[in-house]
Structures are given as structure tokens and as C-alpha cells.
Design a protein around this nucleic acid. Structure first.
Lengths: 247, 247
DNA sequence: CGCACAGTTGATTCGGCTCAAAGCCTGTGG
DNA sequence: CCACAGGCTTTGAGCCGAATCAACTGTGCG
């Protein structure tokens, strides 16, 4: 029902026999733990707080943000249903996690989580892979902030969200943007006005079309991907790991 | 002899009995492997190349950089002696590693490395801690690129390098900057001219003083830390994990 | 209805980029 | 030993992309 719950959400009643008999996943560690709900705007954990627990987002969308002493804010990432948060941090959270939409999640003690992972030959590589994906996303973010123009950043953001849906990126994709312009701006290192202006320009140019509030349709994916600045005519979108190879 | 080999460099002749009998570390996995040398400017591994091996930097300094199709460059990080590189990546390197100074390193097959770590109850948490530090550094980089001014970025860079030396940050610190202005600029998301101008300004203001070529002395650490934008008068430098706590 | 909040759009400003020209080391060869 | 070349750095002048400041338009919601 909620927006952005398109990815594989683990829906398991406490009574239903969990998938523990099948292949264990990181998410399965949270089975049996009570589900908590947060209203949009509520904070799940705070920057600077001791990182005693890890969380599994069952439904909704979180923003991870960090505030500088003088009030400047950076959104370091958006978290969607199915993801596990709070693993790759030290003893304290370096950012706050705030609910963008109504959120449902489970939590478990960090030590217990790590003990469980450490015990399983199947889970250990999964954890590593998860953290690698996190590093990879951070890297991509650094590239964006380090050298892309405002237009390229917005295009990159839209394409990234579209990729997350798993849809075929050749044809038009419909995406949800539950976060505000300010959230997007703080994620992209821009102002909300600049984000708004560029979205308007993309609409004028027929690249995107509003569907309903906070839902848009990406109409010309190919062109959008070229606008990200990472598109090479010969080899296509060279997102994170792939690269223009020597012919 | 080489600059920037201030951190604990693992110096072990192949004949000397390695520290394997003591507590194993990630670095000890590389003991016995042959040491390779690279000239300044040479590339250790390439962006897009299959990531088949991990590396332990014994001496010197590497820059990790990523090139966009149109030639823009981002330096995602500098690696110093003692560090292990190439672990937290997927199947392909998402950036190249180039020698800033003459470099000496050891390499080992990724699978072998991971097998070794996976086998040891002591090494597994060390690997996790290492990757967490990497995530933390990436986060700090994102903050910097996301909302800091040019002056704050340069100050942050200088303070970060100073922290790495492990010196007491109250008193003046002497640091090596083996990389070029362009490297620093590409790391900070600025142009080399801007970096140069700001360094000149810091010199004029008595914050830093040149010692010899590529070596400077940070004379007023407190003030430099305030310039980073992460300094809070009450609680001091709120670098990565710590945070202004509720009193 | 009226308030609060998100988003859009316009006018103006400014920080950092671009372009250009010297300075400065380091190495090299006569 | 000096002259010269090439790369790195510094400094200046002008410009531009995005920020800032400000007004206005939806869009829920009590």
C-alpha cells in the first residue's frame, strides 16, 4: 500500500513458519522480532547515539542524514524496504535515520546479529557483499558530488531510483519520489530551488512526466542516462563496477 | 626514506620469522609474498579490471581515482603504508590505483585472502572493522563534497592528513603532501587553482608554513579545525563517529 | 475558510571555474 | 657550470553556474 515497497518485502506473520528451513539470509535473522512502526518524520536512530542495534526495514523509506554544527544538512542516502541498516558503522551512528514515509521495521542487538552472521558460512559472505554494495554506493555518491553538474546529478538520481525498481531501463519507467525537494537537494549537494528548476526543465523537455503527486514517469531513459555524465556512446552506462573495456 | 612512511610499515625480510606466532593481523596474511615496486606515476590496478587480488601497501602512497567517459577525474582516496586495498569492491575495480610516490607492495589472490580471513576468528572482525573504517571515510568525504566551502575542504584535508600521523593535534604538526595540487583538487572537488589560492591564503594568515618542498607545518591546529566546519566551540572537533552529545 | 507547508519561478549575487601569464623547481645535456 | 625544457605552482582578470533572496502558487487538513 505504501509507496516504494516495490522490492522484495519480507512479510511474515509471527505465526507463519519462517523461511529458516530454506537458505538463510540476513533478513531471516530478524524473523520473529517484533515489528515497530514509525510515522513519517520520526527518527529511528540519532547521529552520535551509541550504535547498539541493527535494523531491517520491512516497509517504507528512510533518509540517512548528517547535520553539521552550524545546521547544514547532508542526506547520505535513502533506504528502502528490504535493506538492513546500521551494520557498517563504528561504535556510534554517524548519521540519523528519519522516516520519509510511514515505516515498519524490526531491530536486533548488534552483537547478536554479528554472532549469528559469524556462526553461518552462508551469512558471512552475504554480509560482506552487503557492505561492499554500500561502499560502492558511497563511491558513486562521491563521484556525483565530486564532479557532476546540477543537471547530471538530478539525472543520475532519477536513473538510480529507476534501477532500484529492477525494471528494464530501455523502456519508460514509473518511479516514486516520496522524499521532498529539500531531501533530494541535500542528497545531491544542491539547493531545493535548483532541483525544482531542473525537474521543471526535464518536464518541459519531455524527459519526465508527472503521473500523480510524488510519482513520475521517466519517458526517455536512454537520453536520461546520457545526461548522467557516465554514459559512453560506445559502451553504454558505465555505472559502478563496469567500465569501458579496451576493444 | 620515502615520504609518508610514518605509519607502522610491516618490514619483514623473507628470512625473518614472521609475527604469525603472535596475534595474526590482516597484514600478516601477506607475509612471505614477494614485494613489488612501482615508480611514481605507475598504475597498480585499473578501473574496470577484474578484481582478482588484494594488495598490502608496504611503503609509499597511492591515489585511487576514477575517470568519467569525458575525462573528468575524481580522486576517491589516498592510501598510505600499512593499508590493505581492493577488499571492499565487487568483481571489478571501480577505480584505478596509481603510485603517487615510489611504492612497495605485496599482493595476494582475493579468494585466498578471504579464505584465510574466513578461517580465523581473529581476522574476521578485523576485516569488518577495516571495511567499516572505509565506509566511515567515504561518509566523511560525502559530507565534505556535499556541503563544505572550498576553504573548509582544504582545512578538512589538512586536518585529516595530520590526524593520520597520530600526532597530538593541540600542538603544531608537520605533514607531508606528496601528491600534486591537481590530485588534492580532484580529491576535494575543486580546481587546482582554487586549492593553490587557499593554501596561499593559509600561509598569509600564518596557519601553515612551508618547511621544504611538499612538507608543511600546521601552526594553528585549533583554528584549522574550526575552519573545517565540523568544529563546535563547546564539544570540539566532531570528526566522524563522535557527536555533540546532549549534556 | 485559513493556515502551514511543499513546490515553482524570477531577479540578483557570488564563490569558484576558466583562461592566461608568469614564476619555480628538477633534471638533462652541452 | 650554465642553459634550457617540461612539469608543477602561483597569481590575476573575467565569467558563469548555482546559491540566495523573494514572491507566488498549489495542496492538503483542521
Amino acid at each position: 500500500m505504501h509507496p516504494l515497497s516495490q522490492t522484495a518485502t519480507i512479510r511474515t506473520g509471527t505465526s507463519a513458519p519462517p523461511a529458516v528451513l530454506g537458505r538463510p539470509t540476513l533478513a531471516s535473522i530478524f524473523l520473529g522480532r517484533p515489528v515497530e512502526s514509525f510515522e513519517a518524520g520520526e527518527t529511528v536512530f540519532w547521529q552520535g547515539e551509541a550504535a547498539r542495534e541493527v535494523f531491517e526495514l520491512a516497509e517504507g523509506c528512510l533518509r540517512l542524514c548528517r547535520i553539521l554544527p552550524d545546521g547544514r544538512r547532508v542526506v547520505t542516502g535513502f533506504i528502502y524496504a528490504g535493506a538492513v541498516v546500521g551494520v557498517a558503522v563504528g561504535s556510534r551512528h554517524d548519521c540519523s535515520a528519519e522516516a520519509v514515509t510511514p515505516v515498519r521495521l524490526r531491530r536486533i542487538d548488534r552483537r547478536a546479529f554479528h554472532a549469528e552472521v559469524d556462526r553461518s558460512d552462508e551469512l558471512r559472505p552475504q554480509l560482506l557483499a552487503m557492505i561492499q554494495a554500500e561502499v560502492s554506493a558511497a563511491q558513486a555518491h562521491i563521484i556525483m558530488l565530486g564532479c557532476k553538474t546540477a543537471e547530471e546529478r538530478v539525472a543520475t538520481f532519477l536513473v538510480t531510483v529507476a534501477q532500484r525498481t529492477g525494471a528494464d531501463l530501455k523502456s519508460p519507467v514509473q518511479i516514486q519520489l516520496p522524499m521532498t525537494r529539500r531531501d533530494i537537494a541535500d542528497f545531491l549537494g544542491l539547493t531545493l530551488e535548483t532541483v525544482s528548476r531542473i525537474m521543471s526543465k526535464f518536464k518541459r523537455d519531455g524527459l519526465i512526466a508527472p503521473v500523480v503527486q510524488r510519482t513520475i514517469r521517466l519517458r526517455r531513459m536512454q537520453f536520461l542516462q546520457e545526461l548522467t555524465g557516465e554514459f559512453d556512446e560506445d559502451d553504454g552506462f558505465t555505472g559502478c563496477p563496469r567500465m569501458a573495456s579496451a576493444h
